[in-house]
């Protein structure tokens, strides 16, 4: 492996001509839009252009002027014909509306989804608690299981239930404690409305008392 390169620095022919000598070249610091994660110059192609614009106006007004002022518009469309530009803008607006509708639907689904805490009987006086539906609220099941395990000092794991969906199974009857934790939003369990949580009890069909 070449430890110290004796070769001459490569000619920098890209738009950021830097002088790479022996020191490692520092990385270019690129600003990314906090709304759509693109560099702000590409926001106009994203699906949240209006919100991106607002963000840029607020946080980086100098850049906003650079990209969206009237004289910038001319350079922005470059060689593209005006007609094609209007079409592009129309497309963007359409895309934006679509993305918004999608986000709305996702939010609605999230609000209506339920978290079920089931107490399942194992042997006579032993139970496990199965918590289903946390993933709908964007919670990492593995992390949540870990949190339960350390909180209750028992085993907690992510398993597939008979329907083939992931749920967390905690050893022991901890359904009330879990409910409290969800209501308080401890650790990773954030953003779940308390109304969406229900406790169900499963009795063993046969062999119980």
């Amino acid at each position: 492996m070449p430890k110290k390169s004796a070769q001459p620095p490569p000619p920098a022919e890209t738009e950021q001509p830097e002088a790479p000598i022996v020191e490692p070249t520092p990385p270019v610091d690129v600003l990314y839009c906090s709304v759509c994660t693109f560099p702000p110059e590409y926001c106009e192609f994203g699906s949240s252009f209006t919100r991106c614009k607002e963000w840029l106006k607020e946080d980086h007004p100098d850049l906003f002027d650079k990209y969206y002022s009237d004289e910038a518009f001319q350079t922005r469309i470059g060689t593209l014909s005006l007609e094609a530009q209007t079409k592009l803008e129309k497309d963007t607006a359409k895309k934006e509306a679509k993305a918004e509708a999608k986000a709305d639907a996702a939010l609605k689904k999230k609000l209506s989804s339920q978290v079920t805490i089931r107490r399942i009987e194992r042997t006579k006086r032993k139970h496990v608690t199965a918590i289903y539906g946390l993933d709908a609220f964007g919670i990492d099941l593995k992390k949540a299981a870990k949190q339960f395990a350390s909180k209750f000092a028992t085993g907690a794991s992510v398993t597939k239930n008979p329907q083939g969906l992931d749920e967390i199974v905690v050893q022991g009857d901890v359904s009330d404690e879990v409910l409290d934790m969800i209501e308080e939003g401890v650790g990773v369990l954030k953003g779940i409305p308390a109304d969406n949580v229900e406790i169900v009890e499963d009795k063993k069909k046969k062999g119980g008392d």
Partner: peptide, 10 residues
């Protein structure tokens, strides 16, 4: 790539 080993090291 057109990269110096020092930069890659970083």
């Amino acid at each position: 790539w057109k990269i110096e080993s020092e930069t890659l090291e970083a």
